[in-house]
Computed example of a mutant assay.
Amino acid sequence: MTLTVPPGDFAAYLFDCDGTLVDSMPLHYAAWCQTLDAWGCVFPEDLFYAWGGRPVAEIIASLNEQQSLAMPVDEVGRLKEERYQELLPKLTAIAEVVEHVDEAYGRVPLAVVSGSTRESVTASLDALGLLDRFDALVCAGDYANAKPHPEAFLLGARLLGVPAQDCLVFEDTDMGVAAATAAGMAAVRVPPPWAR
């Protein structure tokens, strides 16, 4: 896989986490399936990937609505996170993206901007020895409007003290790229697992 980086000098790099820095999407999907099975909820894999970047609570609420279920959002979210944590030993990094982290580390400020919980992001990055590379983490709960709204990326830029137009975003979802574009940032599209 070769990532196409737009031309220019960027003053900061912002990275999505799941599916961008870490190859966690298959593990998240397994955790979802194991958790939702207890409520008789079905989460098709194509829908899971289409909803990449959406906050956990929003996913559960949408599944409840679609399937006329009443799953307790907080409990399901907690159980899903516990199952994901159990799968962390299987987690791998996405090498081509981590190369950009290594190249930029110490040269420009770096942030992770994710729709996942801080607990999940921290655990994933820590499991791969990447947590200390980032100057800021922006996670679910830090902002009101999820991707494709630009709020999370704009917050990341503010925390790094860099104007939005000087930031480069690495993202694996359409919603994430749309959020970066709406924030006035250039973006690198990371292909999904089946396209690598």
Rank of each mutant, 00 (worst) to 15 (best):
Val42Ile: 13
Ile94Lys: 08
Asp23Asn: 15
Pro6Ala: 11
Leu91Cys: 11
Thr173Arg: 07
Val76Cys: 05
Ala164Gln: 12
Pro191Val: 12
Leu154Trp: 01
Ala157Met: 02
Ala187Ser: 15
Ser120Leu: 02
Gly19Pro: 04
Met25Tyr: 01
Leu130Arg: 11
Glu151Leu: 08
Ala157Thr: 02
Phe170Trp: 13
Pro148Met: 10
Pro55Leu: 03
Pro109Ser: 10
Asp142Met: 07
Gly161Cys: 03
Val5Gln: 11
Met185Cys: 09
Arg83Thr: 12
Glu86Phe: 05
Thr181Gly: 00
Val169Leu: 05
Arg158Val: 07
Arg118Tyr: 03
Tyr13Phe: 15
Tyr13Gln: 02
Phe153Val: 02
Glu96Pro: 01
Ala164Tyr: 02
Asp16Ile: 05
Pro72His: 05
Glu45Val: 13
Asp74Ser: 13
Thr173His: 03
Asp172Gln: 07
Ala31His: 02
Leu88Asp: 04
Asp166Ser: 14
Ala187Glu: 03
Phe134Ile: 12
Pro163Val: 11
Val112Ser: 04
Gly176Glu: 11
Glu81Asp: 09
Ala127Tyr: 01
Leu137Arg: 02
Trp51Gly: 02
Val108Asn: 10
Thr122Ala: 11
Pro26Lys: 03
Ala164Asn: 10
Arg196Ala: 10
Asp142Ser: 06
Phe15Gln: 08
Pro26Thr: 05
Gly52Val: 04
Arg54Leu: 12
Leu110Pro: 08
Leu63Met: 12
Leu91Thr: 12
Glu96Gly: 00
Trp39Ala: 13
Val190Glu: 09
Glu45Pro: 00
Val5Leu: 15
Leu91Gln: 09
Gly156Met: 01
Leu79Pro: 00
Leu3Glu: 06
Gln67Ile: 05
Leu110Thr: 04
Asn64Ser: 10
Met25Pro: 00
Thr35His: 03
Pro109Gly: 10
Met185Gln: 08
Val138Ala: 02
Tyr13His: 15
Asp126Tyr: 01
Val56Thr: 15
Leu79Asp: 09
Ala93Cys: 12
Arg133Ser: 14
Thr4Ser: 14
Asp174Leu: 12
Gln66Trp: 12
Leu160His: 09
Leu91Phe: 13
Val177Trp: 03
Glu75Ser: 13
Pro150Trp: 08
Pro7Lys: 06
Glu151Phe: 06
Val97Thr: 10
Asp9Arg: 15
Leu14Gln: 10
Gln67Pro: 10
Leu125Thr: 06
Asn145Trp: 02
His28Gln: 14
Gly52His: 04
Glu96Ala: 15
Pro150Leu: 07
Cys17Thr: 03
Asp18Ile: 13
Val190Trp: 07
Gly161Lys: 07
Glu99Trp: 01
Val190Asp: 05
Glu45Ile: 09
Phe134Met: 10
Gly52Asn: 13
Arg118Glu: 14
Ala95Tyr: 03
Cys33Arg: 14
Gly106Arg: 12
Asp74Phe: 01
Asp174Phe: 02
Leu110Val: 08
Tyr105Asp: 12
Asp126Lys: 13
Pro44Ala: 07
Val98Gly: 06
Lys90Glu: 15
Tyr29Pro: 06
Ala104Met: 09
Gly129Lys: 13
Asp46Asn: 11
Pro55Tyr: 01
Tyr13Leu: 15
Ile94Ala: 01
Arg196Tyr: 05
Ser24Tyr: 07
Leu131Val: 11
Leu159Val: 00
Gly19Arg: 05
Glu119Asp: 01
Leu88Pro: 04
